[in-house]
Nucleic acid binder design. Structure first.
Lengths: 210, 210, 210, 210
DNA sequence: GATGAATGAGATTTCATTCAT
DNA sequence: GATGAATGAAATCTCATTCAT
């Protein structure tokens, strides 16, 4: 009996967050009204408030949900690659596969809303930083390992390398959000080229200098 | 006399937009109230409405103002560099010098608000895309030139290369907005390394393959 | 079988009214929600609505319940006293014994809610006046009798004498409701003194005058 | 300039509290809606909220206003009377003159609402107790003085005597609130009789006993 | 009979905008 | 030109009541 109830509860919460998510991607957090969320969730206001204390709680929940899925898994799988290059390519493919596909534009636009909220809302920022930190740690381990294998310049700050990787991903999501027709494949090719040394084909600086 | 008037008008508009900008960076566009903008601008509601038709107009104006300064100039100056590497390094220094310094956190956070609005507001998106396109075109010329000099892999889509450059910049602004204490210098080093071929120090793939 | 049912029905109603009574004393009629009553009664909303048509009905019932007990009885017993003084003292003791004891604060506070409702709610006022009238009539008989015995000034309006007696009771309940630590015994002493002539110990006015 | 503004502010606040007072007397605090208060005050919702933070604040203010007038003055004037009897009679006349007259029913009913709120609302209770205490202290001085003159039984607790006086007043207000047609004059006569020794005309108890 | 999730009207409160002074 | 009090539509949230299970 408690099980049914709990399943029901979770299902309803999901239903509401999903509906809210759509609305948020469409109009942003604050311009979205509860009425719109209720309509999208096909529920009355009273029902929604049975599952969430406030609109703020729905926003927080929606922020929480974003990409809650398995960055960890991606990292774990990537690490099994035989060499750094293949690992990076696998990672790039895995991450960038998310920016296309059904629902991706909604996700990408929602992410922008989340970022804006993060800049402004301490609670949301807290959760966000925490999650980022977890992934960043995983990534950093990978970077350090690549440096130990002498694949990445050991002189580079590993943290900053991770930041650059994030940037290449997040920055592209921004562009997809603004223009969903942006082609992904050639971008991923560039990213792989950057990370695996085939981007720059010109002369290298005289190592005697610097 | 019309000149004085016009100067005055512009000055007041600037005063209001500046005030609004601060508020927006602090709370986001929509949660910011006109009262807050008025207070920050040290003007009455009536006065503000003499210069702007609506809050929406202030938002649009604030979005317009963002980095209105001289991306073009930076590009023009960069192009004068003797070689691609120096040009890229100059560009990186120029752009990333903006993400620090006084007022930078406000700028970085405001940018997140702008992005969120862009995802959601057709008018703002129009202006934004236009501006981006202008800079992107300038950057693209640089990239194509680098490819012609055989400094960048000619097989890469120049548009996507520009996107990657944008991403490295925007993605970092995102991180600075979330955590203003993020150090910039090591990140810029990584960016330069990525773009000028000193990032990847491992083996290159067998050109016979692929 | 109808009897069992009826007993059950009454028991349930009582349970609900008792619960409501507690809530009402705590928060007042209108701020109390049905949910709170249900929780206090340990019943579901549906169950409560099986026994009462509406919240209004519960309020009415709670008002009805107040002191439903036996003012009449007190009067009947008092009347058996050998003289007016003893009768008044007995009455005072009987009535004021109610303002202390367990549950008395709840009662006293609930009474204030009732009075407020009476001022505002025609239905409740009707019931209230009726009940008051009954007791007032009983009291009045006592007063008239005392006047006939020449114990009370025959020049006084008996109705108003009754009102004064009520006032001494109700006004004290008000004070106990506001501050439950108010001591009862010395107050009762004063009341008895007032009613039996030992309050005023000064000179009496010159009967020649007035 | 600040003076005009401040006067205006006070005037508006008064206007709103007065309007609210009417509504409260009519329907009670909680069933009264802001819309009703706004309509009664002939002001828009927005305007009302410029002067009061919340409905709760209006309730508090309305409670505060109740009888803010000059109980102190009455006491001060009463004290000048040549003897206790005349003083008591003066006091009684002064106080009870308030329970009739235009607007008195509104006042009397509002008082019941206040009492109910006092039982339930800590903030309101605080203010209420404080004010009561002030008057009670004044009254007590009078009572003690009467005891020193040997007009009141010195064996009685002066605090309780004050309480009895309050009760005779408050209890009558209750009755007037419930039935505004209750005649005041004969009641006042009874009160005066009680306090000045002409109520009980029967035998006094044998002082040898007790 | 009992449950408690759902309803939806309605309450309080906010805030962009206007306009008399 | 400037002010800021006033407006009132609309937002969030509550809660008495119903009804499928």
């Amino acid at each position: 009996m408690p099980k049914v109830s709990e399943q029901h509860l979770e299902a309803r919460k999901q239903q509401i967050v999903d509906a809210a998510f759509q609305c948020f991607a469409r109009k942003g957090f604050h311009p979205t009204t509860m009425q719109e969320i209720c309509a999208e969730a096909d529920l009355s206001a009273g029902a929604v408030y049975r599952y969430f204390e406030s609109k703020q709680a729905i926003i927080a929940s929606a922020c929480d949900v974003t990409q809650e899925t398995s960055d960890q898994e991606l990292l774990a799988r990537a690490i099994e690659a035989p060499d750094t290059r293949q690992m990076l390519q696998g990672l790039a493919d895995a991450f960038f596969s998310r920016v296309d596909g059904p629902d991706a534009t909604v996700q990408n636009r929602a992410i922008l809303q989340l970022w804006a909220e993060v800049a402004v809302n301490d609670e949301v920022r807290g959760t966000f930083k925490e999650r980022e930190a977890t992934i960043a740690d995983g990534m950093r381990a990978i970077v350090v390992e690549a440096q130990e294998r002498d694949d990445f310049d050991v002189g580079l700050d590993s943290q900053s390398v991770v930041r650059a990787m994030f940037a290449l991903y997040d920055g592209f999501r921004l562009q997809k959000a603004i223009d969903p027709s942006t082609p992904t494949a050639p971008y991923v090719t560039v990213v792989k080229a950057l990370l695996t040394g085939s981007f720059w084909t010109g002369a290298m600086p005289d190592p005697a200098k610097t």
